[in-house]
Amino acid sequence: MIDPTQEVAQFLYREARFLDTRDWMAWLALFTEDAVFRVPAWKSEHDITTDPTRELSLIYCASRTRISERVQRALSGRSVASIPLPRTQHAVSNVMVTHTDASATVQANFTVHLFDLKKKDTRVFFGHSTYQLLRVADDWRIRDKTAVLANDYLPTLLDFYCV
């Protein structure tokens, strides 16, 4: 019997790996079609926005199609902000799985080191994510990824590969 926390953690590591290797088609395939991907904005020092219908998010994609648009843009060769694409390295830790059967709610911390090749400069993005996962055969799919970015004073830009 596989430890469910271990299994989910392995899934998150895989997601991180796909992001860092720019295997972004494989990354997209981890999401359900109706997946939500959100990076909420902060309202004050310690409160985040919680209602995307009335409040601002830094990133809000309400379907896999919307998420895929970001991937297309980054790979299009027609976005100066994406040329050259940075090197990133995700570290995922403190994985907590609150229940598992057909679905799972997962909390995890992230630290993303990003090397900006044009500026020869390293940036760090850190925070915590909450995932809603769905069981699909012997694997999982992401129904919701909400990444709360702790350092939200953005260095020029933020994109999906930064969280």
Binding site: P40, A41, W42, K43, S44, T49, R54, E55, L56, S57, L58, K119, D152, Y153, L154, P155, T156, L157
Partner: peptide
């Protein structure tokens, strides 16, 4: 003002 802070810095 729609709630949600957005701040950034460019070089």
């Amino acid at each position: 003002c729609v709630p949600g802070n957005v701040g950034y810095e460019y070089r």
